[in-house]
């Protein structure tokens, strides 16, 4: 956004946001990025400071309103419960169940989504036939579908992975189609002129160039896979972080609910960072 820009001996010229003539832009230059030390300061100090302020605000709210722990526990109570639950082995037990279902659903969605996305990107007639149906299916809330999947497939791993895969599938599908459609036609034509086979086109042109956009869908999908796994555990089953939340609710153990939510957040963040690192490694030309 443009600011008040001193123009030397000329009178100050007020520049309205979004309404700047090209000559002024060239004369005054663009906003400079913050210096490196400020960037590091915001990264290493800003975030922890914000978190600390949130924790303080949370604790003050609990103390001022004198909330019982089953209504709103304070952060210290949650941390203590986290440690106890972790030491008992129950936290990892439930987390591993959710992790399995989330990863299983993600792998399923990735396989089906990329394959179907490739077909829809290349076969217009298939896209015209399937795209409206797929789009309409997104209007159906997963909470309505999950009990049906449990009814048909039971409460085991396969049903929960299927629920996770259902919610993960669409972002991956769309990012695959967008990624492949975004490849310049000129590159494809050059490859064809050079005698590239379908496999060579996929391996040397489509796959590398589609990766940046596809990773966006993967990041989103992996986060949603966790949500899907939890939804399956809400509906049925005895283990998993979703089941732990349900059990904790039945026990009126609100701190334990917070523990499960913290673990879910941590799991999703870890997935996000892993995919980010993988993307940095594999798509170096984009960084």
């Amino acid at each position: 956004m443009q600011q008040m820009i001193p123009l030397g001996r000329q009178s100050r010229q007020k520049v309205y946001p979004g309404v700047v003539s090209p000559t002024e832009t060239l004369a005054t230059g663009f906003d400079r990025p913050p210096r490196r030390q400020y960037r590091l300061l915001s990264q290493w100090v800003g975030l922890p400071l914000v978190l600390l302020l949130l924790l303080i605000g949370w604790q003050m709210l609990v103390m001022m309103r004198d909330y019982q722990s089953f209504i709103l526990p304070g952060p210290a109570v949650v941390v203590e419960r986290f440690i106890i639950t972790a030491q008992s082995g129950l936290l990892w037990h439930h987390t591993s169940i959710t992790l399995q279902a989330a990863l299983g659903g993600f792998v399923l969605a990735l396989g089906v989504g990329v394959l179907l996305g490739y077909l829809l990107a290349h076969l217009r007639w298939m896209e015209r036939a399937l795209a409206p149906v797929l789009a309409a299916s997104q209007a159906i809330p997963i909470l309505a579908v999950a009990p049906l999947l449990i009814l048909w497939f039971g409460t085991g791993f396969s049903a929960r992975a299927l629920i996770a895969g259902t919610i993960t599938f669409f972002p991956i599908l769309i990012s695959t189609i967008v990624a492949l459609r975004g490849i310049p036609h000129e590159l494809r034509e050059m490859a064809l002129i050079s005698g590239a086979t379908r496999w060579q086109m996929l391996r040397h042109i489509e796959a590398p160039l589609a990766l940046p956009v596809l990773f966006g869908g993967i990041r989103t999908g992996l986060s949603l896979a966790t949500t899907g796994a939890v939804v399956g555990e809400f509906v049925a089953g005895r283990a998993g972080l979703g089941a732990l939340i349900t059990i904790a609710r039945g026990l009126f153990d609100t701190p334990l609910i917070f523990v499960a939510l913290a673990m879910l957040s941590g799991m999703t963040l870890t997935f996000y960072l892993l995919v980010y690192l993988l993307e940095r490694l594999l798509v170096r030309w984009e960084w």
């Binding site: 082995g89 169940i97 990863l103 283990a239």
Partner: peptide, 23 residues
């Protein structure tokens, strides 16, 4: 990722798996 997910804790089942304290 797959090995971590699968081996970190298989779902409890009513088979002859030994009980784990606290679970």
């Amino acid at each position: 990722l797959l090995v971590a997910g699968c081996s970190a804790g298989s779902p409890p089942s009513a088979t002859s798996e030994p009980e784990q304290p606290g679970l």
